[in-house]
Design a protein around this nucleic acid. Structure first.
Lengths: 225, 225
DNA sequence: TATTAATGATAGTAATACTATTATTAATAA
DNA sequence: TTATTAATAATAGTATTACTATCATTAATA
């Protein structure tokens, strides 16, 4: 039996559900490839259409504009990651062990998950590192937030914040620490690869070192005296 | 006597030095206002030219494109901030006191500094929060970095990393902790104002709380056992 | 067989991101 | 003083981007 993981997406993000048609799945698949290759600024619906072998208008029937497509992809990623986390931390009682596992999942390069053949999770992970924050660093952040575009990200942070509180009920900043871990797992990765002097990992460029840093950061804060 | 603070800028960032002419200073002044108002995506040289009362071609004589202008402004900001830090921590011996002061300067809303009349530091600070990371989150990071476009940012982080090491010589991640503080001072501010559920500061929206969080984070990590 | 839904093909528009040319003005040097 | 240069203004033009609209074709379904 082949399980197919379906992530329920916010319907305001698309005009036509891309997961319900071949063209839609192709849009997702090729947009991940093209954004990864060209970067979000140089990415256009025209190039995407050429890649797929359809027309620009064809893409516009699915997504209003490239911003919504980016938000869609990041949402998909955060939803997928929350599932990964709940799956891999299932049955772990000790919140400390759990939190360590979460940090590892956040900061480790993702392998392509064969379960969803139309999205390459490894490429998407790299896109979220380089382009993910552009989904909310806009003037429309308020409106987008009103439409719940960032719910998957918030949900993930809320879960992590919960584990943090379990580790230390008296810790005062569980939510901020959660978003700090998530953001820093990505930013330190980006810096390590592109601006290494901003990190202590420039020599080896190992995810493992980012994990150590984050563990140190988090568990120093949560240590009870 | 009126002191004029001049920040030495990387000459590869501009075609003609904007600080050497009225038009150039107007470009800086109005671009800060316009980017703040419209956001970087909607900001164009045409609108900027209209704002100033010059032509598009006039702007292009100073800056190759809006990306370089953004990099210019962020560099200016980091240079200015490094000066603020060196000024306000001058003569402080105790590295712990120094680091606290640095965190405060990073996370506190900036007042417009009358010394430079053509750049509104308060607006620029907000631009750096919302748009600053777009200066390096691009496909051209590598080339831009080769041209030393991020030197002011790196210099600032190096200074902070130095203070961190002074606090605890055995701490293993001074550079990453430094970039974490700088990034988080901004990101937590953005989240507090636009996606408050990602922080613990949503109720009061006070810079003071971000400072407390960062102090807790940093000094837990640097505590020697 | 008729109807509808999705796609393909083509065209068109307004705005963006530039480049080029020529005229005008202001500053400076011969 | 005039001649020269440098900066700016005015105008035009191009390729690309970010869309919208229309109509024909095909596939699925009633």
């Amino acid at each position: 039996m082949k399980l197919q993981l379906q992530i329920k997406m916010n319907e305001a993000l698309f005009l036509r559900d891309p997961e319900n048609s071949e063209l839609g799945k192709n849009i997702l698949k090729h947009s991940v490839q093209l954004i990864h290759k060209a970067g979000f600024e140089a990415f256009t619906f025209k190039k995407l259409a050429e890649d797929i072998g359809t027309t620009e208008a064809g893409i516009y029937r699915y997504f209003e504009n490239k911003h919504k497509l980016l938000v869609y992809l990041t949402c998909w990623y955060w939803g997928w990651l929350e599932f990964q986390i709940s799956f891999h931390t299932n049955n772990i009682k000790d919140p400390t062990v759990k939190l360590k596992r979460v940090i590892k999942l956040l900061a480790t390069a993702v392998e392509d998950d064969e379960q969803t053949n139309y999205i390459n999770e490894s490429l998407l992970h790299q896109i979220v590192i380089s382009e993910g924050s552009k989904a909310y660093l806009t003037k429309q952040v308020g409106e987008d937030n009103n439409q719940h575009f960032f719910k998957p990200y918030k949900d993930l942070c809320a879960v992590i914040g919960g584990v943090i509180s379990e580790c230390n009920h008296k810790y005062k900043y569980p939510k901020s620490l959660a978003s700090t871990i998530v953001e820093m797992a990505h930013i330190q990765n980006f810096f390590m690869n592109h601006l290494p002097s901003l990190t202590d990992f420039g020599k080896n460029k190992e995810d493992r070192e980012i994990i150590s840093f984050l563990n140190d950061l988090v568990f120093s804060s949560l240590k009870k005296e």
